[in-house]
Amino acid sequence: MENGQRPAGQVLVTMVAGLALAGFFNAASLAGTARALPIDTWYGPVAVVVAEAVETASHWLLLDRPRTGLDVALGRNHPPPAPTSDPPPPTTTKVPELAPTTTSVPRNPTPDDPVRLWIIGDSLVQAPGELLANLAAESGVLEATLDFKLVSGLTRPDFFDWPAHIETTVLHLDPEVIVAMFGGNDGQSVDVGGKILVKWTPEWLAWYRPRVAEAMGALEGDGRHILWVGLPIMRNDTFTEHVRLLNEIYAAESQLHDHVLFVDIFDLFADASGSYADYLTDDEGTLRLMRADDGAHFTTAGGQRLANLVYSMIVSSFALK
């Protein structure tokens, strides 16, 4: 054929073969994507079975070697490191042997000795986290690190293992204050030892609560101060009911941890009647759009509203000016 033109059948075979081969090359990445799908749908388990079969075959046929080699060359053969320029700590270091964490609050931070703030969570924390980091930088005495992972949560460690990430990261970030916001993606049924726990059932809630306790415990360590930010009211009524269930767990569990403070923001994004509101008045008295199109995430104004609240709590805790 001239000029790169091919008949449709040949194109289809080339395309399918190319995609299939790419699937074998990128089998691990593919399997990771499949595992992020909800397991209580028809396509989630199917995708996992197919992707894991491809992964096994790829490994057996050594087709995963090029990707492994590239990942090693690019330094991506380990779980994503914490966003810091510091070198990772030696893997043999044990948590108790860390440099002692600063637990005395309040203290008088200075530009040379700022309070180390770590902001973590899922996509919901992105906008307020970035704005909180900006407020922290403007203060000159807070050093913030924002560390969020899209579509992550506490129910699917197979997709992203937050407790493990926390344990690794606190070793070298050594934060004094941690702002954590989870739950937006946690409404998923889970497979526990072959038994499917359907999301929002009492069994699922009973399973979920220890996950929260585990995360709080990992964050708290031997005395770090945690601001556990709850979830706001959502546009979707069903989602709002689920948010209430999650917030109850966060509030109850925070009572059991000495250094965890639950920040209830449910009503921060409600109007005077307690209903969900897209538009709310900001600190300057101007009506602003607070929530994104999906009725869940925050706009810049919404993120600022939440960041201001959390920042004011940190300021009062540390007597910052």
Partner: peptide, 25 residues
């Protein structure tokens, strides 16, 4: 022009390699 002279097998292989590199990077 060079790509078009390749057989479909090579074309499919090169596409797969390109997708491998893109996904890795």
């Amino acid at each position: 022009k060079r790509f078009s002279t390749l057989s479909p097998v090579w074309q499919g292989g090169l596409l797969a390699l390109a997708l491998l590199v893109v996904d890795s990077l």
